[in-house]
Computed example of a mutant assay.
Amino acid sequence: MNPFPVYDSRLSASHLGLFLQEKYPLKDPILCRILKTGINHSYLLKDGVNRKIFRLYSYNWRTKREIEEELRLLSLLHESGVPISYPIADATGNFIQEIIAPEGLRFGVLFSFAEGEKIRNFTDDMSYNIGVAMARFHQTTQDLALERVTYNEETLLLSPLQRIKTSFAADSATMAFVESTTHSLVEKMKEIRSDQVRFGTVHLDIWFDNMHVTPDGGVTFFDFDFCGNGWQALDLAYFNVQLFNTEPDPDEYQRKLQRFLEGYETVTLLSPEEKRLIPYLAVCLWFFYLGVQCQRFDDWGNLFISEDYFKRFIELIRKWCTKQAIFE
C-alpha cells in the first residue's frame, strides 16, 4: 500500500538533532526539541550551554532563491552590527539544508540564538530601544533590493482581498467594509509622494513574538521570513498596530509610541509624508495578514478562521480607523 499524501509533517526532533550533528560542528550531548509550529517549524538546539534555532520552512512556502536572499540580507545586517539572529553555515560552508520530508523537499537554516526573552508588554525604554534598532535596520537597507516580494497595492491589498473573499461570507456587512476600505486604500496608495518616502528592505513582522529583550534592554530581531521590498514606513506601521493591540491603556499606548518614535529618530528622521501614511499602511497590513491566515488556513484550523473571528478582527480595524480619524 502506498503512503497517503501528506500536507505537512512535523519531523522527529531527536532524529533532526542527529542529522544536524552530522552537518555542524556541535558538541555532545545534543538536545533538540520543537519550539514553535505554524507556517514554518522552529526547533531549539542545545549542545551544552550553547543554544541555536533551526528553522524548517514549510513545503513549497519559500523557494530556495527566496531563502538565499533572506540570508543575504541577514549577513549584511550582521556585518553592519544591526542586532539580529544571523544564519550559521555548516561544516562545508552551506547555509541551507535540504530535507526530504513525507510531503516533499523542505529547506532548513540554522540561526544564532537571540539572547533575552520575549516580552509582550514593553516598557517605555524598551519601546525606545526597539525604535533605535529598527532605524539602524532601515538605515542599512534603504534602497537595497531583494529578489523577493515587493509590497505594494497588489500584494498588500488586492491579492489578500481575493483570499479573504474565499474564506468568509461574501454578502456580509463585514465583507462590504473590507472591500470598500481596500479600494479606498488602493486609491490612497496612488497619492503617495514617492520622493518623500524611503524605499528599501522591510521586515514586515516586527512585534514582540519576533524579538528578544535582554535585562539591560538590548533588542534582537529575528524571523525575517516575510522580508521583502517596500516602503520602510510599513515596519513602523506594523509596530504601531501591535502596540495598539497589546496596550489597552490609551495614555500608555501614546507614551510608548512616542518613545519608539523618539528612539527611531535618533538614527534617521521620518518625513512628514511617512508620518501621514502610517495609519493607512497599518490597515493595509491588517488586511495583508488576514489574507495570509486565509492562505495558510490548514496551519491553524477552522477554530481560528471563523465568521466570529472575522467580525472581531474587522472591529479592531474599525476602532483603529476611528482613533486615527481615517475613512470617516
Rank of each mutant, 00 (worst) to 15 (best):
N60M: 12
A101W: 05
I100N: 10
I100L: 15
G116I: 13
L74G: 01
L56E: 04
F107A: 03
R62P: 02
R106Y: 05
S58F: 14
L56A: 03
I53C: 09
T92M: 08
L110N: 03
E66Y: 02
A114V: 10
F54G: 02
V109W: 03
E98H: 11
R106P: 02
Y59K: 14
Y86I: 01
L77I: 01
H78G: 12
F113L: 07
G108N: 08
E79Q: 15
R106K: 14
L105H: 03
A89S: 13
L105F: 06
R62M: 09
I53F: 06
W61G: 00
I88T: 06
A114T: 06
I67R: 00
F95A: 10
G108L: 11
P83G: 08
P87W: 01
A91R: 10
H78F: 11
I99G: 07
G93W: 13
I99V: 13
E68Q: 13
L74M: 15
F111W: 07
P83H: 11
S80C: 14
E70M: 03
L73E: 07
I100G: 00
F111A: 03
T92N: 14
F111T: 04
P83D: 06
A101I: 09
S85Y: 05
T92P: 00
E68T: 07
I100F: 14
E115W: 00
E70S: 04
E103Q: 09
T63C: 09
R62V: 00
R106C: 14
R55V: 10
T63W: 08
E115F: 09
R55P: 07
S85C: 14
H78R: 15
P83Y: 08
A101N: 12
H78M: 04
F54S: 06
E98F: 05
Y59L: 13
S85T: 12
I99Q: 02
I96W: 00
H78I: 00
S80Y: 02
N94D: 14
G81E: 11
Y57K: 06
N94A: 11
T63P: 07
G81S: 11
L76P: 01
R62S: 12
I99W: 05
R65H: 12
P87T: 09
R55D: 07
G104L: 13
Y57H: 07
Q97P: 01
L74E: 00
L71G: 02
Y86Q: 06
F107T: 00
L73K: 08
E103T: 09
Y86G: 13
E98N: 10
Q97L: 13
K64S: 08
G104T: 12
